[in-house]
């Protein structure tokens, strides 16, 4: 009954994409990654600190398992900057996947949909596997699919807020209208939010802060793994419609 998620021909057993920022330390990060059973890890690209060139490059901490790497273009304020970061990421040789993330407003970090669409068009044509982070708007999500996105990643709410899914109606419409996978990215705060995303029909979720900043990131990683499975199964099982009044579960006839 359960099929695996496939993105750009790449089959993934786990429907969790996990960010690598903000963990208390590399040990906890590795344990959380292990517990989550994710196969896709996101990273950012930054300048090497030339005063201390040997300070953490995140990849030196990620253990021996095989991962699909998903670098992001965070820090980009327009399409041009995102394209530049994507090309740098690809030149590393570790991945041709790119999460397009373009934000101008530092308070909300909400994605710029017009610049995101431009960058997606260019990068998809260049052969990147493009996964844009975008607002929860069904129209722009469809346009990103048409522009060649391999998956589309609408936000539940602003990055790092833990506000969950602010517009479940939109997420369900996006799921309904797109043919490429839909990954709910950003704003998810707990197992309940993740289950809701999966029950709405999302193909996966991308989390970072919810796990990294939980009191116990490793336990939260376990919890999220189960939440994805529970939500996915619930979606496939088909929930009952909501009704205003009661329907008895026990027979109403032959009472004593």
């Amino acid at each position: 009954m359960q099929k695996n998620l496939v993105i750009a021909g790449h089959e993934l057993k786990s429907r969790l994409f996990l960010g690598t920022g903000r963990y208390p330390n590399p040990y906890i990060q590795n344990k959380a990654i292990e517990a989550s059973e994710t196969e896709v890890l996101t990273f950012a690209i930054r300048r090497v600190n030339l005063q201390d060139p040997h300070e953490d490059s995140i990849l030196q901490h990620v253990g021996g398992r095989y991962f699909q790497f998903l670098p992001n273009t965070s820090g980009a304020k327009n399409a041009e900057e995102a394209i530049r970061i994507a090309r740098l990421a690809k030149a590393s040789g570790i991945s041709d996947w790119i999460k397009v993330e373009i934000s101008k407003n530092e308070k909300t970090l909400l994605p710029d949909p017009i610049e995101t669409l431009k960058a997606t068009e260019v990068l998809a044509k260049e052969g990147f596997v493009v996964l844009p982070y975008i607002s929860d708007d069904p129209v722009i999500c469809k346009k990103l699919e048409e522009a060649g996105a391999a998956a589309v990643m609408p936000g539940g709410s602003p990055i790092g807020t833990g506000l969950g899914i602010l517009n479940p109606y939109n997420i369900s419409l996006i799921v309904e209208e797109l043919n490429v996978p839909v990954i709910v990215d950003a704003g998810l705060g707990s197992a309940a939010d993740v289950t809701q995303a999966m029950e709405l029909g999302a193909d996966g979720v991308l989390l970072n802060t919810a796990i990294a900043k939980a009191k116990d990131p490793i336990a939260m990683a376990h919890s999220i793994k189960h939440a994805i499975q529970a939500g996915r199964l619930s979606y496939l099982a088909g929930r009952i419609p909501k009704k205003k009044y009661a329907t008895a579960s026990s027979p109403i006839s032959s009472g004593i």
Partner: peptide, 27 residues
């Protein structure tokens, strides 16, 4: 972007702007 295998063939000149980047944690 200069591919790694081109590094030794890429001559630097006065005032050249070079960026050296790497991967860091991020979501």
């Amino acid at each position: 972007v200069i591919e790694r295998n081109e590094w030794e063939n890429t001559t630097v000149t006065e005032g050249m702007r070079i960026e050296l980047v790497h991967f860091v944690g991020g979501g």
